[in-house]
């Protein structure tokens, strides 16, 4: 066998070179550049100028960095806590063999066809205080019509829109996984007289634990990209109530043209993003899970 393998043709590093170079320029070099830019002042006009630690000294005194971080984490937790149970329940429900379930879940998936921008704009129109739904329900019930303009409600509105947007996707994961649960498990439980709820807790949930972990990892890592929805829906407002850290960086960079300072925020963002991913992967045992699978 050894003599055979030596004669086997193997592609060299050259085959991977285009991908590596390309990714190096647009994926990896920017991380280095952004770190460099964080030590400069640059207004987009002319060249960046060395500014030493100035941006980094400003960072701790910027209240919006601290609050932005808090809002980002709050949003991550809330989206996870709303999406996971609903996706799990609906996914398991949709996995059932009934025809009606298949039809309904097809409708559930429809939001998947819309882009983030489209979804945010639909909901912005629907939540308009004068011409949207809030005007109607406040007439009927006396509840506030000021959904996107109320600092407490606006974040929940974003959580809801994100739920509307991403639930179908996670539901799909659970549905696919739930279909693979052996029917014999359910049959046995049914003979034991377990109720549907008991079957859900005793069979479905434990059987789906890997999917729960995978879906959670995706949600938490993906939460760094909620930027677009927030920008389009509330612009970070009212005031700064929904100004998540990525949005703060964007506004500092492309609205205030303080690109050096914005780069410092971006470095923080990379650190938080990577830290969060590592933490989640470690805590959830996601990596062991995947390596187990790779071994198969």
């Amino acid at each position: 066998m050894t003599s055979a393998t030596t004669r086997v043709q193997r592609p060299g590093a050259l085959w991977a070179a285009p991908a590596l170079i390309f990714f190096g320029i647009f994926g990896l070099a920017p991380i280095v550049i952004v770190a460099g830019l964080s030590f400069t002042t640059w207004d987009g006009l002319g060249n960046p100028e060395w500014a030493g630690l100035h941006n980094w000294r400003t960072l701790p005194s910027d209240k919006l960095v601290g609050s932005g971080l808090m809002i980002t984490l709050t949003l991550t937790v809330l989206t996870w806590a709303t999406q996971t149970p609903l996706a799990l329940a609906f996914g398991a429900w949709a996995a059932g063999p009934q025809r009606i379930r298949a039809v309904v879940s097809t409708i559930f998936f429809l939001p998947l066809l819309l882009s983030t921008a489209a979804i945010a704009l639909i909901w912005q129109a629907l939540l308009d205080p004068t011409f949207g739904l809030p005007a109607q329900w406040s007439e009927l019930t006396g509840l506030s019509a000021n959904v996107l303009g109320d600092p407490d409600l606006a974040l929940w509105a974003i959580v809801f829109v994100l739920l509307w947007q991403f639930l179908p996707f996670h539901m799909l994961l659970y549905q696919a996984a739930a279909k693979q649960i052996p029917a014999s498990l359910y049959e046995a439980a049914e003979i034991d007289g377990a109720s549907p709820l008991q079957r859900f807790w005793r069979i479905t949930v434990p059987q789906l634990r890997h999917t729960i972990i995978a879906s959670s990892v995706l949600m938490i890592v993906g939460s760094m990209t909620y930027f677009e929805t927030v920008l389009l829906l509330t612009g970070g407002g009212p005031g700064t109530a929904t100004r998540i850290l990525p949005l703060h960086m964007y506004l500092k960079g492309f609205s205030a043209f303080e690109m050096g300072y914005a780069s410092a925020i971006a470095v923080l963002l990379v650190a938080v993003g990577t830290g969060l991913s590592l933490l989640v992967v470690r805590v959830s045992g996601y990596s062991q899970m995947t390596s187990e699978r790779e071994g198969v």
Partner: peptide, 17 residues
């Protein structure tokens, strides 16, 4: 590792490039 880099964090250097 690249899987974990959020795109908006590097938007400024990409704009520069």
């Amino acid at each position: 590792l690249g899987l974990a880099v959020p795109a908006q964090a590097v938007i400024i250097p990409i704009y520069l490039l």
